[in-house]
Design a protein around this nucleic acid. Sequence first.
DNA 1: CCTACCGATCGGTAGG
DNA 2: CCTACCGATCGGTAGG
Lengths: 196, 196
Amino acid sequence: MAKIKSSKNTTKKETIVEKASKLFFEKGFSASSMRDLAERVGVEAASLYNHIRSKEELLQEICFKAAQHYTENIDAIEKDDSPFIQKIEKILRFHIDQMINNYEVVQVVDRDWKHLSEPHLTNYHNERRAYRKRITAIVEEGIRRSEVKDIDAPTAVLIMLHAVSGIESWHRSVQKISAKDLEENILLILLKGLGK
Amino acid sequence: MAKIKSSKNTTKKETIVEKASKLFFEKGFSASSMRDLAERVGVEAASLYNHIRSKEELLQEICFKAAQHYTENIDAIEKDDSPFIQKIEKILRFHIDQMINNYEVVQVVDRDWKHLSEPHLTNYHNERRAYRKRITAIVEEGIRRSEVKDIDAPTAVLIMLHAVSGIESWHRSVQKISAKDLEENILLILLKGLGK
DNA sequence: CCTACCGATCGGTAGG
DNA sequence: CCTACCGATCGGTAGG
């Protein structure tokens, strides 16, 4: 009776995953119930299972789709032949953009990926580590070429990725600066530092 | 029969809160059950309720104790009459220390404070905002005195606090640098930037 | 501190 | 896509 709305370009499953991203973002994966989700989608809880296999499959979709997106970006940046400090800038800009425009997914992945079950948990963990290693390699090459300060590269990557994850709360801030100003401020801080 | 171990300086309740911090850190607040916790404490689930009122009270204890600790630190830093860039450095060092030595609590608070119920949720939210405002004021004064770059202060605070939260995964890293090196690297990156 | 137990809610299935 | 329902587990209480 109450059918799931989905335009030509999105399947019903995609609609469910999208609603699930927002729900999980708001309540966290574990505290979100399939009845919660069903209500937002506009059907009975049992009906969801015609489109998905389980609650966890939703988390899998969210995590691995995001991982794929990240991998595609780092692929492009590695091929790029600009200076390494610019590669780092591009990585930062990508993550800032993601955090501004796709923050529900990014936050859910970061906060709840540990709730994946095996073998997905190990797979995801490996993808995550591989991704960070690729960024670390770029930072290390930047150091070798004297484009980047002589710092511990893994630490720098930790700082870069987590600093940007803070932008999530920018969405709720009262005196909001523009997305563009936010991006430039973050780049200035991370590339040039707070001190004068 | 199976009594809760507690040395002279810790009450049974404190022992439970400590075990709860570790459990919540590992599984998240919502996915942690009181039966999980009871097993770690070494008693039956029902016995926990002789020491605590509810599961949520544990989260309250964790969140507000941490908040108090943060407030005490910022109190001291405000009284301090060193240059503002050094105040910022002290704030960073405090948070780095917390993340290294008290990471379970810090992570639980950051990830799960939203699961507090009213009026605790609003109280905690206000404390959090007030704390950030006090740091923002310090950054702004640093800018006014030309000790800090002319950046958007609220953004700088977001970056500072969240960059440091990334250290949590340092605990699980394979090639671990020392805590001291970690701290100096983070300060170098945040105060002087990645670029050369 | 434990045994025994409660009502509520969970993820998910059967059958149409 | 819904109604009806299942077994499991949840936070928490009564009573000793």
